[in-house]
Amino acid sequence: MRKNGLTDYTLICILVVWVFSFAIIGCSPKDGESVASQNTAQVIIKNKGSDTMVNLAQAWAEKYTGITSTASVEVSGGGSGTGVAALINGTVDIANCSRQIKPKELELATQNTGKAPQEFIVGYDALAVYVHHDTPIDKITIPQLAEIYGEDGKITKWSDLGIAHGNCPSNRIIRISRQSNSGTYFYFREALLGKTRDFELGSLDLHGSKDVVEVIGRTPCAIGYSGMGYATSHVKMLEVATAPDAPYYPPNLENVLAKTYPIARPLYMYSLGEPTGEVKAYLNWILSAEGQKIVEKLGFVPLASH
């Protein structure tokens, strides 16, 4: 040991420092439990949930932090279920959710925290059906989508839709979907297939709204669904009709507000109990004309009253 220049004492010193570092970590004040802790002048509002809404929530948070000095907002994504789970554990002030909270989750949250989650509709999202921009198709019907995505569906090739897709030599429709418990997946499945039929396996289940559009933009054979705000120049949004003889509507502001576009859904925020103080002020601001302006700017649909 001496030969290596490392004496017993240096070794002991290293070990002592190592052990003490654990003690120090153990003694640091716990910060995970306090929600919207008021011990500093600035209140931190914790906001978590839906992947669809994460860009929107981030934009709200940035703008709001700029106009108020008493609060700042921390936003993280992870998915609607993640947000609700955090709400149930009482670790966030506001959960973002692209689907309605389930009765079981509502019950769990009330049981765990003693406060019932309160629901706020903060905007609408149209789920656009995306294809690669070279795909020679502009319109699609809900029954067609159901046959593309549904279990034992009859449409598996582009030619089944009456299309000669030059950029897709295999002719096979590549279905892009989302992981099976995202809010978007749930909503799209119910809009297409109701509550009794499942999606056919073998779709590419991507992790996040952005990835869906990104992959479709690189894949001529693909079809997929994602929030209308995620459109890029590499993809095309299809017009959708509820039935073959019904009129087709593109996903846009007017059609969502008029409820003519068939695959649009509300976006929710949930607070623990009746919101108070800074959380209440923040939610009021989101629902105000100024907050709703940001909804529109990010490609979502603002509430009808604005």
Binding site: G81, T82, A85, K102, H207
Partner: peptide, 13 residues
Amino acid sequence: AAELGEVARGDEH
């Protein structure tokens, strides 16, 4: 990795 983040704790899934 993809699904654990969004399941309700204690659920069958």
